[in-house]
Design a protein around this nucleic acid. Structure first.
Lengths: 119, 119
DNA sequence: TCATTAGTCAATAAATATATAAACTAAAAA
DNA sequence: TTTTTAGTTTATATATTTATTGACTAATGA
């Protein structure tokens, strides 16, 4: 295996690790809908600010988020918008599967009901 | 936030966690190029088989890989091909950035050389 | 200058992830 | 039936992640 490809797998693994938390995925989603400051995120997420700061540090560390100062606050934005695209692709698939599962469960319940009526 | 969306973030985070290792990303890539058995992967990856088994268990546990028996071996295939699509999207971006970084570093070296010649 | 705002840092405890070695198992072949 | 193949399981040591608390800092505004 050529070393450049191996390097890319490692980079990509670091990005996946940074994405591997529901809060961080939600944060990316919020920011992709429009740049936000930490305190704006705090209002929405309702978690301790030290915790938010840690999660943001993970995302910045992986190069997924970038930051600029604006007055007292720091404005966060996506550094690699394609990552959010990839995330949305995955979410679409998962949402579809959840819906499908839901419909299947409902169909199973219907079958049970009908059997009960007949008995 | 509606609970269905929160559930999807959690599902997605589990998938990202399963992807968050260079070996597992490479395994997915190998399998997406064509179904493979464990021993085929072992030949390519040259890692202890207990370790491969653990990594495959992670991928199967997240629902990313599925498995069928064929004689003595178990054949692995992608259960959600769109995940590999998303991974490739990310890899493309990373490869581009690495190339760009490489070119920039080279330009910087050139500049240094020219300065030395003039001195 | 002093207080406030927005955020980071450091320490800690608990939970998870990883690699490795060695024992184990199930299906197929001899 | 015994052996072999292909893979899993268990135990263990180490490292990493996460949430939480409380102290800290840098920029702004009164």
């Amino acid at each position: 295996m050529n070393p450049r490809s191996l390097q890319i797998y490692e980079l990509q693994a670091e990005i996946c690790k940074a994405l591997a938390h529901p809060l961080r995925l939600r944060i990316l989603d919020l920011i992709s809908a429009g740049e936000k400051s930490g305190s704006q995120l705090l209002e929405i997420l309702k978690i301790p600010k030290a915790n938010l700061s840690q999660h943001l540090a993970v995302l910045k560390g992986a190069g997924i988020l970038k930051e600029r100062r604006l007055g007292l606050s720091r404005i966060l934005a996506l550094a690699i918008p394609q990552i959010e695209e990839a995330c949305e692709l995955i979410r679409k698939v998962l949402a579809q599967r959840l819906q499908l599962q839901g419909r299947e469960a409902e169909r199973a319940r219907e079958v049970l009901k009908r059997q009960k009526r007949r008995a």
